[in-house]
Nucleic acid binder design. Structure first.
Lengths: 225, 225
DNA sequence: CTATCTTTGCGTCGAATTAACACAAATAGT
DNA sequence: ACTATTTGTGTTAATTCGACGCAAAGATAG
């Protein structure tokens, strides 16, 4: 289908900030570019929008085909439009961010990239295009979001312990949170449910295993920083 | 400049939710369409993106040429991408919302529209395209934003009184807020500055005139609803 | 010029929420 | 069984919040 107005439209793409949490570290998935522009530089994964494709579809396609991921939490972040953001010409990028559990996915470089790798968010290389800005904005959004909405569990296993959730929050928010006050707030919100099971094999007292409460309606909470 | 990949890109547009506050009413600016599709229906103002134009530039252009407005508060809201949202074909809309003081602008229908008019947000007609959804999302964003960030003054005169700001908040949030507690929170936040002047000519005790504190760094506040 | 009515500015107080911290139970290793 | 560590639970003081009282300022009427 042709566009119904007069001039040549910009290219339309999605870019993805894929967050993963593993071994008490928050990481982002980056690709190493095989071709110009920004050859051999690290960038966020992305793709041009295909015919009749929604943004989310394009994101899912990237996650599936380039990264082997299915069914991940995905949220539109912001649209980036600086005319010179892509040296090849005018390109609009609708940025999204995704939350995945790295232990559930197998990441491998496709034919389009030299390499694919997780980077700790505090040790990122300088990214190509305007991806530094996109990443910073995504991080900011994630930090804001987890303080009032239950998205943390997207980064953890289906069953997780209170100390694990607590550590996740401290890591993402880059601060210390009193463990006992944190527990009370989370439990009061009914965000998670105690399964009755315990995590076996841990060093000392075995912590309770929780799962996300899918029936949660609109019980809010507020973790202060 | 040509796009650098293979297929024909969707049309790219901006749509604007322009909020105005006047006589204790929150309103939105709508256009009555002169042509199909949605002829004679009310819609949000918008425009197709021109060559090398940023979203904000396109928004400013609409505000300036269609509505005679300059220098208004503008924020990107969300990008809408349903393939069937425009019956003419695939069109992406990057929605923005604007906050203006209606007493500062003169609105007039351009050649593109039958009519331009402010509508009280509680008495909106059914809008064309997917603009009902865009409007609802903008209203939600505005309601959320004013509870923690000083954007209210964008809708008021440069000098305003505490009761005026209070009424604005009650109107936008559609709730009652204790006048004395509201005052304390706002003043503690240093969001506004007392000019020392008083509003003359009012019925009873003359309220103090305040102005927005432009030097405000990151003093947050929180108006609970 | 005084009485009255309304609005605005400032203050108080109990209730609710938060932050800081104490302590005991559970577990592994010695 | 003794120790070190982690986890679950409770307690208390500090802070914030919500509901409300009251007096000062101004307009109007007698």
């Amino acid at each position: 289908m042709k566009p119904f107005h007069s001039y040549q439209n910009p290219s339309l793409a999605v870019d993805l900030v894929v967050f993963g949490y593993s071994k008490q570290q928050l990481s982002v998935l980056l690709l190493n570019r095989k071709e110009e522009p920004f050859k051999d530089r690290w960038v966020l994964p992305g793709a041009f929008l295909q015919m009749e494709e929604r943004f989310k579809d394009a994101c899912s396609r990237v996650l599936k085909t380039k990264l082997g991921m299915d069914d991940v939490y995905l949220e539109q972040l912001y649209s980036f439009d600086e005319p010179d953001r892509d040296p090849r010409g005018r390109a609009i990028s609708v940025a999204h961010y995704a939350l995945v559990n790295p232990s559930k996915v197998a990441v491998a470089a496709g034919s389009m990239a030299n390499d694919v790798s997780w980077f700790n968010i505090n040790e990122l290389p300088a990214l190509g295009f305007d991806h530094d800005i996109i990443f910073q904005q995504a991080l900011q959004r994630l930090r804001s979001k987890i303080t009032y909405f239950p998205v943390g569990f997207e980064l953890l296993d289906d069953l997780f312990t209170m100390p694990e959730l607590h550590e996740l929050y401290e890591c993402i928010l880059d601060t210390t949170i009193d463990r006992r006050n944190f527990r009370r707030k989370i439990l009061d919100s009914e965000y998670i449910i105690n399964t009755g099971k315990k995590r076996e094999g841990s060093q000392n007292r075995h912590p309770d295993l929780y799962k996300f409460n899918k029936k949660l309606k609109k019980n809010g909470f507020q973790i202060n920083v």
